[in-house]
């Protein structure tokens, strides 16, 4: 393995920078009036808002699986779920998505023993740092044959590595919303909608054989809405959460088929 020197950036990016803009990001509840509801109609609206916040927009999730080898877990075996973090700046999987998949796989009656990502990376440092981490399963045997690493993996009883790539992005948005504040009160009127797409792929590597056991992809799409007649009512599609749950469930049944 030949070490490569990263290059320092040339010139100062500050010269390309645009002047700062004053922006107020829209978050759930930002547009709500700040005063307390003072009559039954406003109380009812507040209740409606609370109920609608709990409602979710529609999410369509698809999971696909490609199996290359048989898999099995014995008692005491463990896996680790890792996010792909390559050094050239590319899209990185959200840290909370990696945590979500790991937590979901370890929960329940048939939960799998999942090692925390950061604990694993520290325990086997520097082998899974972005500079050195294996890029594909063909690189794995060369790395895991290092005697200190092999001994540590053996002690951890690590059976599978799960690499996750992908992200959730906003792909479309439309509509408008106008809010007004007057001496007598305030309110909003309008309609917003936006679509989020999640696309994740998990590769399962077998530590014992140093091969790729299979791949699972999870895609989810969902449209969120925010109608507003006096009070904005957010109806949020939990796209990333849906992609996490479906990917974790499929990984569980893939790694430890019952």
């Amino acid at each position: 393995m030949k070490p490569k020197q990263p290059t320092m950036r040339k010139g100062h990016p500050a010269s390309r920078a645009a002047p700062p803009q004053v922006e107020f990001r829209l978050r759930r509840g930002d547009a709500s009036p700040t005063h307390q509801p003072s009559n039954p109609a406003l109380s009812a609206l507040a209740l409606l808002l609370a109920v609608c916040t709990l409602l979710g927009g529609c999410v369509t999730a698809t999971v696909q699986e490609i199996r290359e080898t048989d898999t099995a877990m014995a008692g005491g075996d463990a896996i680790v779920v890792l996010g792909r973090r390559s050094q050239p700046t590319t899209d990185e999987t959200e840290l909370d998505f990696i945590t979500c998949v790991g937590d979901s796989m370890s929960r329940g009656a048939e939960g799998i023993n999942v090692i925390d990502e950061q604990q694993f990376i520290d325990a086997v440092f520097p082998w899974f740092e972005p500079r050195i981490a294996p890029v594909n399963s063909a690189d794995l045997p060369e790395i895991i044959k290092q005697p200190p690493l092999a001994a540590r993996l053996e002690r951890m009883r690590l059976k599978y590595l799960v690499w996750i790539e992908g992200s959730t992005e906003r792909t479309d948005s439309s509509g408008s919303l106008t809010c007004a504040v007057t001496p007598g009160g305030g309110g909003c009127f309008g309609f917003l909608s936006w679509e989020n797409d999640s696309s994740y792929e998990a590769s399962v590597w077998d530590i014992d054989t140093g091969t790729n056991a299979g791949k699972i992809s999870s895609e989810a799409t969902g449209m969120s809405y925010m109608p507003a007649v006096i009070v904005p009512i957010p109806i949020i599609a939990r796209v990333r959460s849906s992609a996490c749950t479906s990917l974790a469930n499929q990984l569980k049944s893939f790694i430890s088929p019952s």
Partner: peptide, 12 residues
């Protein structure tokens, strides 16, 4: 009234 026009992602 004081008005806030709001696009899907940003208040200005």
């Amino acid at each position: 009234p004081f008005a806030i026009n709001q696009s899907p992602t940003v208040f200005r």
